[in-house]
Nucleic acid binder design. Structure first.
Lengths: 176, 176
DNA sequence: TGACAGCTACTCAAATTTGAATACAAACTT
DNA sequence: AAGTTTGTATTCAAATTTGAGTAGCTGTCA
C-alpha cells in the first residue's frame, strides 16, 4: 500500500546497506521529494522485513549498526509490488485538492489573492523542475530518474494551467 | 500535515454531526477518492480535536453515538490550515512515481506491455472523470467540487501524455 | 411476525509513521 | 591539542492510521 517497502527493497537491490545508506540512496533518487517516507520508517521497515524473511542481516555491527541485504524472497516481493504499481492506476494525492474543496469558505478577494500567489509559486516550481532535469546524473542517479522530474513538471504545469483559467472565473463570480 | 484534521473541520462547518455523518459528507465531496482518510481516523480525529478544545461535544448519546460541533477555536484552526494549503505548494504524491523510479528493473517487453496496459487504464480514467463532472451536484455537493474533478482529469491527462510519448522511446531503447 | 439485507455507528488492537533525541566519528579550526 | 561543526547511524515514545469486528436500527418481503 504505502511506498515504504518497495522503496527500501529497491534501494537494497543496489547492494547491501544499512538504514542510513538506504536513506541516502532514496535521496539521490529524489524519492524524498515525492514520497513521504520519514527516516524512522526506514529502520522500522528494515527490521520488519528482516523478521518476515525478505531481508537478511549481513552484518550486525557493534553500536547498533546493521547491514541488510535482499534475499530471493525479498526480490520476488519487490517484483510483485513493482508490477502492481505499474498496472494499477491509483489516485494521485494532491494536497491542493483540500484547498479547492473548501474554496467557498473564503471571500472573493482572499481567493483571488491566493490564486495569484499560487501562480507565482507554481511558475517557480515548474522552472526549478525543468532546471533539475539533467542535474541529477552527477549524483549517481540512473538516467530515467529524469522521467520522474518530467512527469512531475507536467503535473505542476497542469496545476498552473488550472490556476490561470480559474483567476478570471473567480473575478467574474463564475466561481465558486 | 495530513489532511485529516482540515477535512473533519470542514465537514463540521456544515453543522453538528457524528463521525458517520462526517464520513458521508467527505464521500459526497469526493474526498474519499483523493485523500487517504480511513474512517477509523475520523473518530480518532474527532475525539482528539475535542480534547484539544477545537470541537464541542453537542450530544453524547447512549450507545456511543456522539455529535460534535466546531467552536470558534476550531473555526480559526480551520481557517489557518486552509490558508496554509492554498499558499504552500506541497509535493504531489503519485504512486506511479515508484514504478517509474525502478523502471530499469524490468525487461524491455515487460515495460512496453505495462505501458500499453497503463495507457488503456488511464484513457478509461480520463473518460470516467469527464463523465463525473456534472454528476456530483445531484448528491448535494457544492458546484466547485467539479473543479476538483477537472484538476484531477488534467493530471490524468498529463500521465496519459507521458505514457504515450514513453512507448516509442522504450521501443527504440532510448529508455530506460 | 420473523428473518434477512442493508444501513448506521463506533471500538479497538495492531501496524505504521513521525521526528526529536542521542551518540559517536571525522574533518576542520584556532 | 582542545574545541567545534558536519556527517553517519540509530532508537524510541508518542501520535496516527488502519480496517476487521461488533452491534443496533430500519425496511421489506414472505
Amino acid at each position: 500500500m504505502s511506498p515504504t517497502r518497495i522503496l527500501i527493497l529497491g534501494a537494497l537491490l543496489d547492494g547491501p546497506m544499512n538504514g542510513y545508506g538506504v536513506r541516502r540512496r532514496l535521496e539521490i533518487m529524489g524519492a524524498d521529494q515525492w514520497a513521504n517516507v520519514a527516516f524512522g520508517s526506514i529502520y522500522h521497515g528494515l527490521s520488519k522485513m528482516a523478521d518476515e524473511g525478505l531481508l537478511d542481516v549481513v552484518e550486525a555491527g557493534k553500536g547498533g549498526k546493521v547491514v541488510y541485504a535482499v534475499n530471493d524472497t525479498g526480490r520476488m516481493e519487490f517484483y510483485r509490488l513493482l508490477m502492481g504499481s505499474w498496472s494499477t492506476v491509483q489516485p494521485i494525492i494532491d494536497p491542493f485538492q483540500v484547498a479547492l474543496t473548501f474554496m467557498d469558505r473564503l471571500r472573493k478577494e482572499e481567493i483571488v489573492a491566493a490564486l495569484h500567489e499560487r501562480r507565482r509559486q507554481l511558475a517557480m516550481n515548474v522552472e526549478a523542475t525543468a532546471q533539475a532535469v539533467g542535474a541529477k546524473q552527477r549524483y549517481g542517479a540512473p538516467g530515467h530518474v529524469n522521467e520522474n522530474l518530467r512527469l512531475m513538471g507536467a503535473m505542476l504545469q497542469a496545476q498552473l494551467d488550472w490556476v490561470e483559467q480559474a483567476i478570471p472565473r473567480v473575478e467574474s463570480d463564475e466561481l465558486p
